[in-house]
Simulated scan of single mutants.
Amino acid sequence: MTIPLPTLDLQSLDADHVLRAFIGWWPDVQTRAWLAEQALQAHAIYGGRMMQPDHFHLTLAFLDGSRVSDLQTLATQMAQWTEPQIKMDLTMRDVFEKPRVVWAGPDASQSQALTALQQWHEEIWAKLIALGWTRQPRLFRPHVSLLRHAQIAAGQPHGHALPTQAFVGDGVGLIVSVPGEQRSQYHLAAMIKPERTGA
């Protein structure tokens, strides 16, 4: 399991500092290459800013602004969490109009994968709430963002079938967004271990 991001030692930071964070599922190198191709094709249609290949991920829980002390506690807890085995294909491209995001994800026919992802999402949030986080009323739509700041014509259908690509996970992590001079950089603060199979 590898997530291609610089690591961040939360213990070295001011406990009262607030950072934006999320828990994300990272695809492997082959899946990221496919996503980069889809982002390039989508950019020709919508413009906007393409996601960096190393930043492609499926968000499992968005934590908004969180105190470093809370993230430190979460990082310790996450070492005991496990990543379930979920088989999912990326088969469609669509948009979120208001935030101007173009994304790739599974279509509605993948009911087993969508149900498993929803259950995983709920389990993660149950643990987060127990640690003191407040859940915001967001609809969970499993997706990988391809573009941000896209030029999306409102009220028009944008769903588009894509050549099927298996989403091969290569790590689940607590990701912290650290502000930079030009743009924020994702840093890995903790990892979830994969679920063991076999004897």
Rank of each mutant, 00 (worst) to 15 (best):
M1L: 11
M1N: 08
T2Q: 14
P6N: 00
P6Y: 00
P6W: 04
L10Q: 00
H17V: 09
V18Y: 10
V18K: 13
V18P: 05
L19S: 04
L19H: 07
L19Y: 09
R20Q: 11
G24P: 01
W25C: 04
T31H: 00
A33K: 09
A33N: 09
W34D: 10
A36E: 11
Q38N: 08
Q41C: 11
A42D: 03
A42P: 03
Y46G: 03
Y46T: 04
Y46V: 00
G47R: 04
M51A: 11
Q52P: 06
D54I: 12
F56S: 03
H57P: 01
T59A: 07
L60D: 07
L63I: 01
G65M: 15
G65A: 15
G65T: 13
S66A: 15
S66F: 11
S69N: 14
L71N: 05
Q72S: 10
T73R: 15
T73C: 15
L74R: 09
L74D: 07
A75W: 06
A75M: 08
T76I: 14
Q80A: 15
Q85V: 13
Q85D: 14
D89R: 15
M92Q: 14
R93E: 07
V95L: 02
K98E: 15
K98Q: 15
P99M: 00
V101T: 06
V102Y: 04
W103N: 00
P106L: 08
P106Y: 06
P106N: 08
P106G: 09
S109P: 10
S111C: 09
Q112V: 14
A113K: 11
T115E: 12
L117G: 02
E122Y: 09
E123V: 02
I124F: 02
W125C: 04
K127M: 12
I129Y: 10
L131Y: 03
G132T: 05
R135N: 05
Q136T: 13
F140A: 05
H143P: 00
V144K: 04
L146R: 00
R148C: 02
H149M: 13
Q151N: 13
A154P: 04
Q156F: 09
H158V: 01
A161W: 09
F167G: 04
G169R: 04
G171V: 00
G173K: 02
L174R: 05
P179Q: 11
S184A: 14
Q185G: 06
Q185C: 09
A189M: 05
A190H: 01
A190G: 02
K193M: 11
P194A: 10
E195W: 12
R196L: 14
G198N: 09
